[in-house]
């Protein structure tokens, strides 16, 4: 079984490397070790989304039973998205679960994840807090996602107001990421975030 897995991954690796998407710099794939059981994927945030200009790292683990079971993929780069856990990076995407088909490839999966960044599925959330913000205050969601892209994925647009608020909490001795999470959760209301952090 593992034999098929290794053979498939080698071929897919080549396929990705020779694809237009790699040539265009939209996706990347790299090996982590020699055994082909773990890879590192990279996708670029799609244009006209708050993720634009960001580069997102993905951890790809290939199971023994690949391709009859899906690869296990999660975001390593922190991201604010309704279908991705803001804590663990776990992704909620049907083709990584019950809609997986043996004929799917890493290239198609990476492209699907990229497509997920353009079109979130708020009805099937992985992160309930993010999904709620996405549904109820779309504007705030877009700003928060852009802010996270700027801080964690090297995106171009900094949100000055948010940076200031994070700095305020930093000055109180709070860890930077913790401060950002709390503020993002409480719709950037400094008071409620502080209350939560000190309770």
């Amino acid at each position: 079984m593992a034999n098929i897995a290794a053979k498939r991954i080698k071929r897919e690796f080549k396929e990705v490397m020779n694809s237009e998407e790699v040539a265009g710099g939209y996706i990347k794939l790299a090996l982590v070790n020699d055994s082909w059981t773990e890879l590192q994927g990279t996708i670029v945030g799609p244009p006209d989304t708050p993720y634009e200009g960001g580069t997102f790292q993905l951890e790809i683990k290939v199971p023994e039973t690949y391709p009859f079971n899906p690869p296990k993929i999660r975001f390593v780069t922190k991201i604010w998205h309704p279908n991705v856990s803001s804590v663990t990076g776990a992704i909620c995407l049907d083709i990584l679960k019950d809609q997986w088909a043996a004929a799917l490839t890493l290239r198609t999966v990476l492209l699907s994840i990229q497509a997920l960044l353009s079109a979130a599925e708020a009805g099937d959330p992985q992160d309930a807090v993010v999904a709620k913000q996405y549904r109820e205050s779309q504007q705030l969601f877009l700003l928060t996602a852009r802010h996270w892209t700027n801080v964690y994925a090297g995106g171009p647009s900094a949100i000055w107001e948010f940076d200031q608020k994070v700095q305020r909490l930093l000055d109180m001795g709070i860890d930077e990421h913790e401060a950002r999470v709390a503020l993002s959760h409480y719709d950037w209301e400094l008071e409620r975030a502080t209350e939560q952090l000190f309770s």
């Binding site: 079984m1 098929i4 039973t65 009859f68 079971n69 088909a101 043996a102 004929a103 799917l104 198609t108």
Partner: peptide, 23 residues
Amino acid sequence: CWGMHFEVQIMQGVSNTIQCMAQ
């Protein structure tokens, strides 16, 4: 590959609803 596919599915408890491997 069909054999392997069925084996994996059966071990996961799927029987009547095993599907084709195509996307």
